[in-house]
Amino acid sequence: MSRRLSMAALAAGPLLLAGCATGETEVPVAMRIANATPAVSVTARGETTPVGTPNADAADDPAIWRNAADPLKSLIVGTDKKAGLYVYGIDGQARDFLDAGRVNNVDLKDGVAISGTTGILVAASDRNDIAHAKIALFRLDPATAKLTALGKLDGGAGEAYGICLGRDEAGLSAFIVLKDGTIHQVLIDASGAAPTGRIVRTMKLGTQSEGCAVDDRTHILYVAEEDVGLWRFDARATGSTTPTKIAAADGRNLVPDAEGVAIAPIGAKDGYVLVSSQGDNAYVVYRLRDDSYVGRFRVVDGTIGGSKETDGIELMLGDFGPAYPGGLFIAQDGHNAAAAQNFKLVAWDDIVKALGPK
Results as ranks from 00 to 15, higher is better:
Ala56Ser: 13
Lys308Ala: 14
Asp80Glu: 02
Asp333Cys: 11
Ser307Gln: 04
Gly171Tyr: 14
Asn35Phe: 04
Ala338Gln: 14
Leu75Phe: 00
His219Val: 11
Thr241Arg: 06
Gly321Ser: 08
Ala213Cys: 05
Asp61Lys: 11
Ala282His: 09
Ala100His: 02
Tyr161Ser: 10
Gly92Ile: 02
Ala11Leu: 09
Thr49Met: 09
Phe97Thr: 11
Gly158Trp: 11
Leu17Ser: 12
Asn104Lys: 15
Val112Met: 10
Asp227Ala: 13
Ile130Cys: 01
Gly101Tyr: 13
Ala34His: 11
Pro357Thr: 14
Val294Gln: 03
Ala264Ile: 15
Gly119Pro: 08
Arg287Trp: 08
Ala21Lys: 08
Asp349Phe: 04
Pro243Ser: 07
Val275His: 09
Ala145Leu: 04
Arg139Thr: 06
Ala249Gly: 05
Glu24Phe: 00
Arg66Tyr: 01
Cys20Thr: 14
Thr53Asn: 01
Leu72Lys: 08
Ile176His: 04
Ile130Lys: 10
Gly321Val: 14
Ala56Gln: 05
Val51Asn: 01
Arg95Asp: 04
Gly312Asn: 07
Asp154Ile: 07
Gly156Ser: 10
Ile163Cys: 06
Ala337Gln: 12
Phe297Glu: 07
Thr148Gln: 06
Leu85Ser: 00
Tyr272Ala: 10
Thr22Asn: 12
Asp180Pro: 12
Phe297Leu: 10
Leu317Pro: 01
Glu26Asn: 07
Ala113Asp: 15
Lys353Glu: 14
Ala59Met: 04
Asp96Thr: 11
Ala157Val: 15
Lys358Gln: 14
Glu169Lys: 11
Gly52Ile: 11
His184Met: 13
Gln341Met: 03
Leu328Met: 08
Ile183Gly: 00
Ile64Trp: 00
Pro325Val: 02
Ala59Phe: 06
Ala30Lys: 09
Ser292Cys: 06
Ala63Asp: 07
Ala337Arg: 11
Tyr272Ile: 06
Asp227Asn: 14
Ile220Leu: 15
Pro195Thr: 04
Asp319Asn: 15
Arg287Phe: 06
Ile220Ala: 12
Ala262Ile: 01
Ala224Asn: 11
Asp96Phe: 15
Gly356Cys: 13
